[in-house]
Amino acid sequence: MDRRNTDENAKLGSYDEAEHWFVHLLESGCSADERAEFERWRAADPAHAAAYREIELLWRQSKEAVKNPAIVAAASRALRREPETRARRYWFLPAMAAGLAILVAVIVLPRWLGTSADPAGMTYTTTPGQQQTVALNDGSTIMLDTDTEVVVRYSARTRRVDLLHGQAQFTVQGNHAWPFVVHAQHGTVTAVGTQFQVRINDGCTDVALLKGKLAIATESPHGTPQNASLIGGQGLAYDETGRISPLHSIDLQMAGGWTQGKLFIHDWRLPDLLAEMNRYSATKLQIGDPSLQDIRISGIFRTNNQQVFLQLLQQGWPIHAKRLSATQIVLLRNR
């Protein structure tokens, strides 16, 4: 066998493996270990990655082609005819890309449509005080803040992430043909090549766009669906009725502070600051003197060091801390 035939067979082998992986990754029972094995296969050889990209392209083309009954019937007849040789199949590949797209649709689409609209997905969680960055298969990342849970459900149609509670920052690899959609309470946030944050807080969902563009849509049985769009440096909120607040400018340093383990605050009420700090610790802080309710605080505080935080409060304001138990500290006014 000459070198050209050897190269052709290697490419055919990569293409066949890519077909196998593409179908398997669409199945709801695909495990995390299997997805990790796929990533190792794709990274092992540039030919693997190229073959998989081609399968993805054919899949997108097939979703349109499969709508035509005549084309599907022709593809079905073609499937019943065995190719003469694997080499011939390869040499006809560039000229028959559309035909192969139809074959992919006939073989793969029924399996995909036979699964639920929302695959089982992969769940990621953090505990109080913990943060985690998740690298996704498409090059996007999710940074989970303290006490946060997300479910990632990738399919050929969409990249879906459900934020169940907490706060997360999403850095999205752009792909107009494969939208990245975050579902949070009664709304969705759709991104293409952006970096943004979504936070669920007492029935309200806050969205902050650090760069790029976003589309927000809400839907609630208790209200009227609404839509809005954001550009970098803007934010909004929507509630459980689906009502969207007016757009506002965001402080980029303050918005990004938690990703560095810091709170950048200006003129916050003490109860609000304590509520935010309590998210990062199992030991909860509470106000024991009503006269402290209206104290205003500005500064930069580490979220992962409650002891230093208490020292700063006691040095800068008329406050002293008293521990009541292993998980409870009360703040009192100095007399």
Rank of each mutant, 00 (worst) to 15 (best):
A208V: 03
T218D: 09
G235V: 12
G187I: 04
G203N: 00
S220F: 11
A217R: 15
T218Y: 13
A208R: 15
C204L: 14
V161C: 10
Q195V: 15
E219K: 05
T224D: 02
E240K: 04
G187S: 05
I231Q: 13
F170W: 01
G174E: 13
F170D: 01
D206W: 02
T224Y: 07
T194Y: 10
G166V: 06
L163S: 02
T218K: 09
N175T: 06
V192D: 15
F196T: 00
F180R: 11
Q195P: 08
G233P: 06
A177C: 03
T241Q: 13
R199L: 07
Q173T: 14
T241G: 06
A191M: 04
D239S: 09
I200G: 00
H183S: 09
H222S: 11
G203Y: 02
G233N: 14
L230E: 03
G232N: 13
A217M: 04
I231E: 15
D239V: 06
V189F: 09
N201Y: 00
N227E: 10
R159H: 02
G187D: 07
R160W: 08
D206A: 03
F180Q: 10
S220L: 13
L236A: 05
V198P: 03
A177Q: 14
Q169F: 03
T205R: 05
L164S: 02
T194I: 05
E240R: 14
H186N: 09
Q173A: 08
T218V: 13
Q169N: 09
A237Y: 07
H165W: 08
L164W: 07
C204G: 02
V207L: 07
D202A: 14
Y238T: 07
F196N: 12
N175V: 06
H165S: 08
Q197G: 03
S220N: 10
Q185Y: 06
L164C: 00
H183M: 08
F170K: 02
T241V: 07
V161L: 02
Q234K: 11
T158R: 11
T224W: 01
F180T: 12
V181H: 05
Q173K: 10
Q173L: 10
L214A: 14
G233H: 13
L214V: 15
G166H: 15
Q169C: 03
V207M: 07
G232W: 13
L210M: 07
I200N: 03
H176P: 15
V192R: 15
Q169T: 02
S220K: 12
H186I: 04
G203M: 00
T194E: 07
E219I: 02
S220T: 03
P179S: 04
T158I: 15
A215M: 04
R157L: 10
I231D: 09
L209Q: 10
I216K: 07
L209N: 10
R159E: 06
V181F: 04
I200F: 01
L163N: 05
Q195G: 13
G232H: 09
V172E: 06
P179A: 09
A237N: 06
Q167H: 06
I216T: 12
A228M: 06
A237D: 12
